[in-house]
């Protein structure tokens, strides 16, 4: 049992790190635009398919396919924002969230129409798991983990050192003051949507690499992404990472005790517990 728990912890940290990528996209959009973008699941699916096309049809290596997934999803995210969400901006955050949910359904079914319902797999070599005593780790898992860490590192450097990243943080912190200092909030919002959606696409592809690609690959992640963002504190970048790792570990550990079919219950329980006990989440102040 202790070995099973330790294996679940290893798997959970890896799964949580991958989940952190789309959770970062979700929370960045919330921080700057002040609404939860529930199209994030469908956007993750767009990324998974874009990466799959790049890898299998165009023969791109994994990093290049990941870049394609990011770019294609960034464009899809901007289309969702401008076509579905922005026209309802004056109606408030709830209407924008509902619009994003509807746009997600449209995207998901467009992908179903284009690619069908079959499971698709990336063109990957079959490799044996690495064994460390009682523990096993798949080389693909490790690669995905490393790619997720690299994506988070690049996002951190972008937000910390670039002029646009600093402007994004400034708008998220204090939109009115950012405007008074010359920042164009509309431009920052567009960049944030593109980056946030792009991260969701990368996350979708990383999950697809670990499992397979189908029209619901991203939709299945929405609850976990939302739970991670709520747990960390909506709008908090470090919170999204911590929340995602906690959700990843909790989902893996829950499988030890319950039927895997109940895995998704973890997300619901976490959301319920956080909203009841600490509405601001672990790191956030915005949600309170």
């Amino acid at each position: 049992m202790p070995e099973a728990l330790a294996q679940a912890l290893i798997n959970g940290v890896i799964a949580g790190t991958i989940l952190a990528v789309p959770a970062l996209g979700f929370t960045a959009i919330f921080a700057v635009l002040n609404y939860p973008n529930f199209a994030i699941g469908a956007l993750a699916t767009v990324g998974a398919y874009a990466g799959w096309v790049g890898n299998t049809a165009l023969g791109l290596p994994m990093v290049a396919a990941l870049a394609l997934a990011f770019s294609a999803t960034a464009v899809a995210g901007l289309v969702v924002q401008w076509a579905a969400v922005k026209p309802l901006e004056s109606a408030g955050a709830l209407m924008m969230a509902i619009a994003s949910l509807a746009a997600g359904l449209v995207l998901e079914n467009a992908l179903r129409f284009g690619f069908g319902n079959d499971l698709r797999g990336y063109d990957l070599p079959l490799l044996r798991d690495w064994r460390f005593g009682e523990f096993r780790v798949g080389p693909q898992q490790v690669q995905n983990f490393a790619l997720a860490l690299a994506a988070m590192g690049m996002l951190w450097a972008f937000l910390r050192y670039s002029r646009t990243g600093r402007a994004m943080r400034a708008v998220a912190d204090n939109r009115d003051l950012a405007l008074l200092r010359g920042v164009d909030p509309a431009r920052v919002a567009a960049v944030t949507v593109a980056v946030g959606a792009g991260l969701a696409g990368m996350g979708g592809m990383l999950v697809g690499l670990d499992t397979s690609v189908d029209p619901l690959v991203g939709t299945r992640l929405v609850l976990s992404i939302f739970a991670a963002a709520v747990l960390g504190g909506l709008g908090s970048i470090p919170g999204a990472v911590a929340g995602a790792i906690a959700i990843g570990v909790a989902e893996e550990v829950a499988v030890l005790a319950f039927n895997p079919a109940y895995r998704l219950v973890v997300g619901f329980v976490v959301i319920l517990a956080v909203l009841t006990l600490r509405p601001a989440g672990l790191f956030g102040a915005r949600a309170s």
Binding site: A170, D173, N174
Partner: peptide, 11 residues
Amino acid sequence: VPQERNVFGTL
């Protein structure tokens, strides 16, 4: 310089 919230607190 506005009266309130005149710095970016998280920066």
